[in-house]
Design a protein around this nucleic acid. Structure first.
Lengths: 131, 131
DNA sequence: CGGAATCCACGCGGATACTG
DNA sequence: CAGTATCCGCGTGGATTCCG
């Protein structure tokens, strides 16, 4: 009913294991998720503004939605200090930290093959140009 | 100019390594990429129709676009047999196969934490309901 | 400071029809 | 069989404004 906003979605995945995994990974595929997790990976906790500065280019809206989705799924813990002015800290949960390692694998892969992929794109462009 | 369609994009990534990685991973974040790679992971090669049946729910359009992007980036090899009727085989390149392992890590993680995440969502829903 | 709400553009992606 | 072309809805996400 209320449910603030419906932008970022996480539905109950279907039967097929591979498709189910892909549905779950929809969370990770959300444009900013990896960067937010990456920003939280080392620090013990970050405030809203610190987090926003740590993820260059993210809007307030997307930062709020992304961390909310991550919190909903138990990957990020949100701590509110009822001070004035208010203060909110974000940190990875235990489960959230377990995600860092596999993400790390993907990041390493991307850095490792970055040049090869750029080269592949050039070769492909040359091939289509001659045709 | 021609360039068929501009749906799936892969731009030159910027300077920041983490952001650069995220840009590269945009390829993987494309809704169907993981499923297509997963379908090609074991078989030596698959024909267009076989591939489409191996990825339930994918449209011709998205299958074509996805494999084309993967081919552009050197992850998938496309072989055309000029027979009648025509036949096209798809298979992972050597670089494409190196991506399977890190993806596997992510898939394992998602299956491993599927229940915990579902539980976290229930707990979160209960908390917001009481508030 | 840390959001929530509203508005809006753009591009992803599905459905359909046509082609070599 | 293996695509391409066109149309188009709707979700994603940026910019802006307001609030506790």
């Amino acid at each position: 009913m209320s449910a603030t906003n419906k932008t970022l979605r996480v539905e109950e995945p279907p039967g097929d294991p591979c498709v189910a995994a892909n549905e779950m990974l929809a969370l990770i595929r959300d444009k900013w998720t990896i960067l937010v997790l990456g920003a939280l990976r080392r620090e013990k906790s970050l405030r809203y503004n610190e987090l926003q500065r740590a993820v260059p280019g993210i809007s307030q809206r997307m930062l709020t939605l992304t961390v909310k989705t991550l919190e909903e799924n138990g990957l990020v813990k949100r701590t509110i200090f009822p001070t004035i002015p208010p203060r909110v800290d974000y940190e990875l949960t235990a489960m959230g930290r377990t995600l860092i390692k596999p993400l790390r694998g993907l990041l390493d892969w991307s850095l490792e093959h970055r040049d090869a992929m750029a080269e592949a794109r050039r070769a492909y462009a040359k091939r289509s140009a001659q045709a």
